[in-house]
């Protein structure tokens, strides 16, 4: 086992992270979908809707926690899938490093989006 797998792919850590983030996401992701598709029609969720939503600290916190837990859940779930479908050790580690980098980049993009947007909304 390489250092990468020892640190990041502890089976019990993956197992607990999947379930805790999953229980959180059932509430956060379905709530997000409800607000943007059911209680408001998706045609009315343009930039003015987002500006109004991200003026409230509740929704900024909600979306930040949603982003983080969704990506943790996605990575933990993908680790399980990679271990099931890829048997060659080197391929397995390459795919896992690729997925970890993709998820890290997505987290940075998402976090920067929220920080820059909130900064812009508060400065106008």
């Amino acid at each position: 086992m390489s250092g990468f797998s020892r640190v990041f792919i502890s089976r019990s850590l993956t197992y607990v992270a999947l379930r805790i983030s999953g229980a959180l996401l059932a509430f956060l992701a379905l709530g997000h979908f409800f607000v943007t598709h059911i209680s408001t029609d998706v045609a009315d969720t343009g930039s003015s809707f987002v500006t109004k939503r991200w003026s409230s600290s509740l929704w900024v916190t909600w979306d930040t926690v949603l982003l983080a837990s969704a990506l943790v859940h996605a990575f933990a779930g993908l680790v399980v899938i990679v271990y099931d479908y890829i048997t060659r050790e080197t391929t397995k580690h390459r795919v896992l490093i690729l997925l970890a980098s993709l998820i890290f980049i997505l987290f940075v993009i998402g976090l920067l989006t929220i920080i820059i947007s909130v900064f812009k909304i508060y400065s106008t």
């Binding site: 045609a43 930039s47 987002v50 982003l67 993009i109 998402g110 820059i116 812009k120």
Partner: peptide, 28 residues
Amino acid sequence: FAFLSLHIVDVAFFAFSLNAYDSLHSIY
């Protein structure tokens, strides 16, 4: 996860230009 990746990138346009975000978001 595939949709989430795309969604994170499309919302990122909101931070740069509201018009770009709106024109992209009208697809939804």
